[in-house]
């Protein structure tokens, strides 16, 4: 108790050795460094290497992604995990990262450490993503696929028909019609439209 009081006293006491300018500037620089480090650390958690670093992701969803158009295609532009799963906007990103900490907890306690356990939870995990994308009007898809710049005349007839009606009117969003574009689907019984 007394040691804490002693430290508080030190903190409250005005600086004797350092000028106010030095302390302000020092604090400012330290702030930049910490902020940068924090964001760099966050960036690292956005890389595909990080996401597929654990076998739960590498052996399940990543393997499946590899067979889809978002992994290889004629133009060579591709989407990685964070493109679809992490919001760009900072507050949303932090919120998602904090949620992800719970997933790390699940990892440590082996909630989905086998393929079987993963498949058991898949419906719930997929449902979380569908709900999120439905709520934000498929924001992550739209970060790359901008409806404003879609040339419907160059799309296939089926795509054009649906995009010019249900999508254009805002009645539906990408994830309503494009479930399972990146991974295998869970049991779809009871899912709307299936």
């Amino acid at each position: 108790m007394s040691t804490i009081k002693k430290y508080l006293k030190v903190l409250k006491r005005p600086s004797v050795h350092y000028s106010l300018g030095f302390l302000t500037l020092g604090g400012f620089i330290a702030g930049i460094i910490f902020w940068g480090a924090f964001n760099t650390a966050l960036e690292v958690t956005n890389t595909e290497e990080f996401c597929t670093g654990c076998h739960e992701m590498r052996d399940n969803v990543f393997e499946e992604l590899k067979t889809t158009i978002h992994y290889t295609n004629r133009s060579g532009v591709r989407a990685t995990c964070s493109d679809c799963h992490v919001p760009h906007n900072w507050t949303d990103k932090i919120a998602r990262k904090m949620q992800a900490s719970k997933e790390v907890w699940a990892k440590i306690f082996g909630t989905i450490d086998t393929r079987e356990k993963f498949l058991e939870h898949r419906r719930q995990l997929a449902g979380n993503e569908w709900r999120r994308l439905k709520a934000n009007d498929s924001l992550e898809c739209r970060n790359c696929h901008n409806f404003e710049f879609m040339d419907l005349t160059r799309q296939s007839k089926r795509a054009m028909d649906q995009h010019s009606t249900a999508l254009a009117s805002g009645e539906k969003t990408c994830i309503d019609c494009h479930k399972g574009i990146a991974h295998h689907l869970p049991d779809m019984k009871g899912v709307e439209g299936w």
């Binding site: 067979t67 889809t68 158009i69 296939s156 089926r158 028909d161 649906q162 399972g180 574009i181 295998h184 689907l185 869970p186 049991d187 779809m188 439209g193 299936w194």
Partner: peptide
């Protein structure tokens, strides 16, 4: 008459039927 790349037809999901089913035909045409 169209592509079916990555359309799943397995015990979990049948992508064909999500358009060609009786109760999906109106919406999907």
């Amino acid at each position: 008459p169209h592509k079916v790349d990555n359309y799943p037809v397995n015990k979990n999901a049948n992508k064909c039927m999500s358009c060609h089913a009786r109760d999906r035909a109106e919406e999907s045409q």
